[in-house]
Nucleic acid binder design. Structure first.
Lengths: 147, 147
DNA sequence: TATTGTTATACTCTATAACTATA
DNA sequence: TATAGTTATAGAGTATAACAATA
């Protein structure tokens, strides 16, 4: 690409490139474990917020209820999570299954290793700075701490 | 989400959230102009590298030839670019069409405006830092300056 | 009325594999 | 043999719209 292209000054473009770099090989390494990066995010969210509902999960993932539903269906099908009775008859309470609680460790190893590799050219201070700056441009999902 | 979740420390996760924030409303605002963010990236690349081929474009976009083909087809169909004869009988030379050269300005206005809004919480120094750090974690596409 | 989950449908983006023409 | 483009097909991710059950 031509140097000095205005493209290189666009945050949105650079974010897309960085993101696609970041997930490229984590996707490959997660595949044998039967999960994709977006679904692993959902799995971690459910682990960290046991009993959450699908609408809450959708908000946390910034997708709509219907998309959250599809993700949950996939995770249930693979016996990584289960739907239990929620606080009223409309809602589900999502929890890791026994199998999911076991399998998540190997999955997390993959993403942690990838995270280290991705930021290997960054100092510790740079890494913190990057997290801070990314947070500054990320919209508030409006997801409360409680479910 | 629970505070202190390890999710918040993962660069890949934060990148995904920042990216989805960044393109959310630019996508909406580009829609009436008949283009999507990824296709606009391709359009800008073609403008800045006139005469480039589809394989080159695919490398620049980090997609394979087949995906680049689909993008090019769409842009041609909307009369934003045209395929001209390339340097040999196998290859195309991609150029903006007359219509594309006109229409690209309004599209760029949208992304520039969005870029400003996205980074409004960042100082000028922070913005430069963010670009530098994103660049550090982005893989080399192996795309030369020349076509 | 509002909320939760659900279903049906469709679109965008990307990939793989096999093919043709040209180099 | 290698490269550029093409085609067919498939899968992941997301969205909209309409619906049922419950609040």
């Amino acid at each position: 690409m031509k140097r000095g292209s205005e493209l290189n000054e666009l945050i949105g473009y650079r974010l897309q490139l960085a993101y696609s770099t970041a997930i490229e090989d984590v996707r490959v390494k997660l595949e044998p474990l039967g999960i994709t990066p977006p679904k692993l995010i959902a799995l971690i969210l459910i682990r960290d917020n046991p009993g959450c509902g699908q609408t809450w999960l959708g908000n946390a993932l910034r997708v709509n209820r219907s998309s959250a539903m599809k993700i949950v269906n996939e995770l249930v099908k693979r016996d990584l999570i289960e739907r239990r009775a929620g606080r009223d008859l409309r809602s589900n309470a999502l929890h890791l299954s026994k199998n999911g609680a076991v399998r998540i460790h190997a999955m997390l190893d993959v993403v942690r290793e990838a995270d280290t590799r991705i930021t290997q050219r960054l100092s510790s201070a740079d890494r913190s700075t990057l997290l801070r700056l990314l947070n500054a441009i990320t919209a508030d999902p409006g997801v409360a701490q409680e479910n």
